[in-house]
Structures are given as structure tokens and as C-alpha cells.
Amino acid sequence: MADSMTFILNGKETVYSGSATARLLDVLRNEYNLTGVKCGCKEGECGACSVILDGRLVNSCMTAMGRVAGSGVVTIEGYRETERFKALDKAYASVSAVQCGFCIPGMVLASECILSKNAHPTEEEIREGISGNLCRCTGYNAIVKAIGIAAKEGDGLW
């Protein structure tokens, strides 16, 4: 009989009894139906599958389930319930930073990780912070601007 493990998924204690070598990406999408986590390349290059693991941004395609035991995982489905998301939502909308949208869940979680480390990042720090998340549509300017706006308007949230 397979052992099971426990982790915190979007704030809820979750028991997982599948393979420890399964990809977090596949498990989130297929077992927990968290399809906001996107699969862009499955080789750790594009960042579309980004989730927050114990406060750090990781590519869920490069994370084995065994690594997740006892940890906290936040996906866009959990994050969108927060006040911080609302600030980012407003900021992204104000500059129309969302085009095809495929990179966006990962990009939003990357934005959170930038701001949770540094509530008032410079433009350079913002660009560095999302440099692991590819976007083919926007040229990045609008996304960078949006994160800057969220930092300013959401003052105190981070």
C-alpha cells in the first residue's frame, strides 16, 4: 500500500497518496483540477506553471510531489482570494497588462513574490523578478508598470 503525505494546498491541509515522483504541475491540474496552473513547456523554462512553495516562486513542472510534503503550496486559485490579489488585479487591469493570458497566473504569483520580498521595488528589480516568466504578447512593459502601480496603490498590503 502506498504511503500518503500531507501538504497545505491553498491554505487547506491536503492528503496526497500518489507517486512521490509525480510532477507537482500534473498533480495540481489533474488531481485537484487547479487548471489556472498552466503548462507551457514542462521543462522549467517558461514559468507559466509557477506556484508559490513556502513563500518562494517555483516552476511546478520541475517540482516532484515528494518535495512538497509538509510544505505550503499556493496557486492562483488560492491567491485570487486575497487582498493583495485585488490590488494586483486592479493594477493589471488599469494598464491592460493581460493579453492572451496564458502567462498571467504565473506572472501574478511572480508579482506577489517580488512584492512580498520588497514592498517598493525599483523597475530593475521588478524586471529581474519576472525574468523567469516568459510572455510573448506584451513586451513586458505593461506588466512591469502594473507591478509598480500595485506596489504604490497597495501600500501597506505588502
Binding site: N30, N33, T35, G36, V37, K38, C39, T75, I76, E77, R80, D89, Y92, A93, S96, V98, C100, G101, F102, I104, P105, V108
Partner: peptide, 24 residues
Amino acid sequence: KSVRKKDHASKMSGGAKYVADWSA
């Protein structure tokens, strides 16, 4: 003058359904 895009909310929240997101 710019408006809030019609598809902003569904894409921003991760709720938009792309082809791979259909139940298998």
C-alpha cells in the same frame, strides 16, 4: 480611452478555460 478589457477578469484569476483545461 482605455477600458477594463472584457476578458481581463477570467484570465487574471486563472479561470479562463484553454483547450487543455477541459476535463479529460
